[in-house]
Design a protein around this nucleic acid. Sequence first.
DNA 1: TATAGTACCTTGCATGTCAAGATACTATTT
DNA 2: AAATAGTATCTTGACATGCAAGGTACTATA
Lengths: 106, 106
Amino acid sequence: MNPQQRKSNLDLCVLALLSKSDMYGYELVNRISDAVSVSEGTIYPLLKRIKDEGLVTTYLKESNEGPPRKYYAITDIGLRRKDVLKNEFVAYVKGMNAILEGAEIL
Amino acid sequence: MNPQQRKSNLDLCVLALLSKSDMYGYELVNRISDAVSVSEGTIYPLLKRIKDEGLVTTYLKESNEGPPRKYYAITDIGLRRKDVLKNEFVAYVKGMNAILEGAEIL
DNA sequence: TATAGTACCTTGCATGTCAAGATACTATTT
DNA sequence: AAATAGTATCTTGACATGCAAGGTACTATA
């Protein structure tokens, strides 16, 4: 996996979660970091970037537990990108498996 | 996956291949890049690093098709590291799957 | 009033990866 | 004989990523 692939995986995480429902940044950080450790300093710039790319839109919503939340909603472009990234991720894992099994079986 | 994780994946590729048989650098580059694109500028420094860490040893062998080849052989420490990295990789993929499936099922 | 939790974001640092180039040997073509 | 292409090693410079840490600000609790 090149650094691009790693970045793509995080993009994929965010887009996959947003394809289920709108979420705000802090929520995305917590959801993703449960599964594949990641920090705020990574996700917030990522969110800004994919918004600039048109993969998501945003809207503000007040909260009674703290400051207003910035919700992210996935766009059609974002949905298509999600599918592409998912295919790339699957291909990457297959490639890794080929090497891991090849090392044991061959 | 953090940058460390990505690095770990390449370490895992190299160690997994070397656990099957000794190989030289150029050969490793070609074998790995068939599955998960990577370049010489990445692998050669990686090989130097894991040698410094004691995960592999090296020996030179002449070739009748070009310059001498530097072969890499995995050590016991390298074999143990390979198992650790493999477990981490499996955990990472499971985490990604949880997010991908969660996004569809929940 | 002070601490802790929620929620946003930016900055600086360390690291990883690649493209490109340098070196050098062998084989093939011109 | 000279030039090209393939094999094989390694280094350098530029760029991107991701994190830790810090900054801001709101709410609730002690």
